[in-house]
Design a protein around this nucleic acid. Sequence first.
DNA 1: GTGAAAGCGCTAACAC
DNA 2: GTGTTAGCGCTTTCAC
Lengths: 340, 340
Amino acid sequence: MLTIKDVAKKSGFSVATVSAVVNGLPVVSPKAKEQIQSAIKELGYRPNRVARSLKNSKTSSLAMIVRDVTNPFYPEVIMGFEDVAWSNNYEVFLCNTENNPEREKKYIDNLIGRRVDGVVIATSFIQRENHYDRLLENGIPYVFLNRRPEQLLDHEYFVGSDNAAASEKAVLHLTELGYKDILYMSGPLNLYTFKKRYEGFLRTMDKMGLPVGEDRILFSSDFMEKSGSEHAKRILGYEKMPEAIFCSNDLLAFGVHQTFKEAGMRIPEDVALIGLDNNRYSHLIDLSTVEPQNNQMGRKAGEVLLGLLKIKDVIAHEQKEIILEPRLIIRKSSGADARS
Amino acid sequence: MLTIKDVAKKSGFSVATVSAVVNGLPVVSPKAKEQIQSAIKELGYRPNRVARSLKNSKTSSLAMIVRDVTNPFYPEVIMGFEDVAWSNNYEVFLCNTENNPEREKKYIDNLIGRRVDGVVIATSFIQRENHYDRLLENGIPYVFLNRRPEQLLDHEYFVGSDNAAASEKAVLHLTELGYKDILYMSGPLNLYTFKKRYEGFLRTMDKMGLPVGEDRILFSSDFMEKSGSEHAKRILGYEKMPEAIFCSNDLLAFGVHQTFKEAGMRIPEDVALIGLDNNRYSHLIDLSTVEPQNNQMGRKAGEVLLGLLKIKDVIAHEQKEIILEPRLIIRKSSGADARS
DNA sequence: GTGAAAGCGCTAACAC
DNA sequence: GTGTTAGCGCTTTCAC
């Protein structure tokens, strides 16, 4: 493995001069520059970034902590994040916690040991984990993505989607189509996104003067299809079916769709359906939904982090929260075709 | 930021002894060990892995190069890979090439500079990229995942799914159900997987003594839904419809499904449909398909790589290729219910 | 403009 | 068992 010394020897200059050339410092003579560059090319020398990092105390690496890449929410986010990282010459570590706080903790310790320059946390519960403090202690900035802890400390940042507004858009879409009896299927309220979506639903229904019957709100302890299916079965047993169902995420809506289809229910004729997330495959079942701008979320998180790194001060005088505006996506399941 | 010296000072021992404790070497006295450990805890010391890496020339980091995390094939693979990496105390860099060879090249250079210990390449065309050589030159082992270049050099490894067998399983499933006139929709043949799937289709049809009419094979330059849709429209114009359609991946099948549904065609009554990939959402349209074992692929790739690192010799005396057996998944679209 | 040398934080001989 | 020290490959200050 070649080192800067090899280049120095080959080119006849000192390591200091070689280093200056490698780093593009404008203090070296044209002839030196040329000779050194050709030596580099000839040898195929590539600077050891580990050594550089040790010297600089800067690794040009970032980390993104997610629960599970397999969750359809993440890939878009990762894409966006990785792309801005790449454009700024950072590499990114991907960390799956598999929903295990112990694993998250250990990951954070590892990342600190690696001296990553910054991290995006896309796993947080509302109830904050105390191990984030260690990042601060070690001067590593971090930004929360998508899920915001109740309290944002001075050095903490957040990038997310306006979940309450997303609910509002979904509900208004339904009410504009004339639906009044709307059932809301919620994910777990200890997750920030679902809490906000729930609040947005209630607020909008209230604003529209629509009552929400007791059996018109269903809670799940997760947000997977299976829960949607189970709730759907429950709904099929209702004396009076709702006119429309608003699922707090698309996976729940997938479950509802599946179960209703099996039961011979037609969507939207018998009951309208709308989701939230714009899952990559929602169009397969013509699901109307709301798009939270996942890719943008990843991008913004990257930009905030890089901004923090640039000013070299973890407590930046920037916007502490960036909230993206979601976008309504109308497909057949909400009955827009039939009704308007 | 704390260093080993701080711990040495605090505990009253030398850096060497502290290092020994940190690394669990069994040469240090119980009292020393105890005192040092408590000093570590008290200070909150965490070894700088950058420095360690420089000394060891080993970074405990791996990289996975993919085209686009957003492609539904990858998340499962990444999950599997990341999990075995994690279990072995490796972190993983995720690199999206966005299908751009230049970007891949630059990524590989970066990874070499970072001295990653190994890399998984899940992007390869059949026509190999010459920049993989640089990894070898720098003593960094790599394994191809899913897509195998035509030639595997001595130091190269491959983990993938048996794509020809996958096709065979799909075709046999259809023929067992009595279909004889089967249309095959192919992805681009310059991709390893699609080449193999195509060969598997032809071979199996031949084996079964079934003719393949000229208009019974359709090629696409990509493997996305849109191509599936376009082909489906073409098929709708046929004088004689095929009895069954076998799409070389699920995305194509999604497109076919969508277009047929819009045209009022019933699946499987009017035409049976089967895909290949077992996309996470295939069940939404009750698509029969074949599952290539993506998670396993990621895991195996990780294991091969770690094995290579253990023996410290890039040319290992191990199995050079690991081919996983795909699994048939029967849902309604192939008409299994109706016919058998 | 160029070079010598110190030092980033760690590991591992080697000496005691 | 424990300590001293060289050195991993680089950057950067300071002389010249």
